[in-house]
Design a protein around this nucleic acid. Structure first.
Lengths: 123, 123
DNA sequence: CGGTATCCTAAAAGATACTG
DNA sequence: CAGTATCTTTTAGGATACCG
């Protein structure tokens, strides 16, 4: 009773939460996961649907997600080349939390916009 | 029928999803939100519970969250100073998605560890 | 205690060119 | 089309010192 401030956990390097936050803390990770979603996407699809991402960043993000076991990559040895990306089972399971985030964003977008305006006005 | 690949949305600068992903894409944002949680935290509490964050980064993250309307800051004009941080109503509402992410991380931590081992072994 | 201000380096990211 | 390689620039972030 009356016990407060007892930390739930310490977010150090080995904490799975911290690793998670670092993963989605990669600028393009959430976008890539979200855009692939349940679909199959080609490299160029991703580039088009995530404006502002460079080839370098897109490739880097995809490789990282592949290594984490969230994304699978299938290359067809044809010319011109064709590469397909999709989420693995584990990748699909992360879609729910990511989508929850996205839903939140949509729900609160006007509120957020107001705050941003207020802030911009001040400077 | 047979219609595929129609993008759900384009994640450009004005897209609320993109703004959300950019927000949690800040390295310390999720950690700070998660650690404050339903509690009241002092600056030094946060520093202690998020090892690795520097004053600079912590302050920057807190200011950003304040401006976004997710965190409120209360300064007591006493000496030594005392500052309290807590989540606003909107801030608390984002806790659910963030917690969903955290839960996912805990649930899949062993799977993720295996993938990391596999990858480390290859180089 | 809860910050700023300043400097400085390392890492991230952009631009461009090239390739199977 | 789907990348890689190289180079340059920008930015993030750490270290340190200082302040009310």
């Amino acid at each position: 009773m009356g016990k407060v401030h007892e930390p739930l956990c310490i977010l150090d390097e080995n904490c799975p939460l911290r690793q998670m936050f670092d993963l989605v803390g990669d600028r393009w990770t959430s976008s890539v996961l979200f855009v692939i979603g349940e679909d199959v996407k080609r490299y160029s699809d991703l580039q088009r649907q995530i404006p502002g991402v460079s080839k370098k960043m897109l490739t880097q993000t995809l490789r990282r997600l592949e290594q984490a076991g969230l994304v699978s990559r299938k290359v067809y040895p044809v010319v011109p080349p064709r590469t397909e990306y999709r989420l693995t089972a584990m990748g699909k399971s992360i879609l729910q939390p990511v989508t929850a985030l996205a839903d939140w964003a949509v729900k609160h977008q006007s509120e957020l916009k107001v705050m941003r305006k207020k802030h911009d006005a001040k400077e």
